[in-house]
Structures are given as structure tokens and as C-alpha cells.
Simulated assay, not measured.
Amino acid sequence: MSHPTPYPVRLADEISRQLDQLAEHLTHLLAHEATQVIARICDPDHGLLGGVAHLVDRSSRFAKGQTERGALPAEVWLALGRAANDLAHTSADLEEHRETLQHASTQPATSAGKPPATASLVVRRHR
């Protein structure tokens, strides 16, 4: 007799499926709609990125306990810890752009008139 799939496993599968759907939708949205989605994803309090960071942090804490019991190799715990830290840093990097994203997400779609001026891309990284 096979064991039924536990609810949390089904939930993780469903969330993963929905993330794939969201990514696909994002590629087809109008610019202002896509910006609204991105602003919500990056919202540090209620956004997707913060939720994933929290989930990976919890997973790392669980893995630490399993590592201490000898059930998981230390490399698994360490990799989850690094992932949790990276996500936290990414969330912090995006936090400085929160207001810009929120403002852009509330702007109406641009008319067919003059397109907005393009901006040169600047790469800067600070941690």
C-alpha cells in the first residue's frame, strides 16, 4: 500500500507550479502590469522573495538539527545556510528600490505618444 503524499509536499509542488505560471505570465504582461507584479514579488513584508527567504532560513535551521543528529551531511546544512544568507542579502539590496518599484507600479500605462527616454544601464554592487 502506498502512502499518500503529505499536504506540505503537495503544497510545495503547487507553489512551484504557480511560480512557473507567474514567470510565464510576466513575460506577456504590459510594462506597468509587470512592474506591479515585480513590486509585489520584492515587497519585503508580504512579497514572494521575503517568503522564500524565510522558508529557506527555516529549512536551514531544520537541516542544522538533522546534521547534528547525523541524518544529513554538514554540506547540506551549510548550502542551505548560504542560500538563506544570499536571499537575505538580495532582499536587502532590493529594499533600497522599494519606493521606486511601488511608485512605478502605480503609474498608468504610457500612451502611444512619445516613448519614455531610455536610461543607460549602470552596474553597481555594494554589500
Rank of each mutant, 00 (worst) to 15 (best):
H97T: 00
R61H: 02
V76E: 05
L94A: 10
R69S: 03
V76L: 09
L78Y: 11
L72K: 07
T90Q: 11
T90R: 11
A74R: 11
H89Y: 14
H89Q: 13
T100D: 08
H103L: 12
R98H: 09
S105C: 02
D57N: 09
E75M: 12
P108R: 04
T67W: 03
A63N: 04
L94M: 13
D86I: 00
T90D: 10
A84V: 10
L78G: 01
A104T: 03
E96I: 05
E99F: 05
Q102C: 02
P108Y: 02
A84K: 09
A74Q: 09
L101N: 06
E96L: 07
D57G: 08
L78K: 13
T100M: 03
Q102L: 05
D86Y: 03
Q66T: 06
Q102K: 06
T90N: 06
R98Y: 04
E95W: 12
S59D: 02
L72G: 03
L72Q: 05
P108F: 08
L87C: 14
L94T: 10
A71N: 04
L87T: 15
T67I: 06
R98E: 00
E68R: 12
Q107S: 04
A84G: 10
A84D: 08
A83I: 06
N85Q: 15
A63H: 00
A92R: 13
A71D: 08
Q107E: 01
Q107W: 03
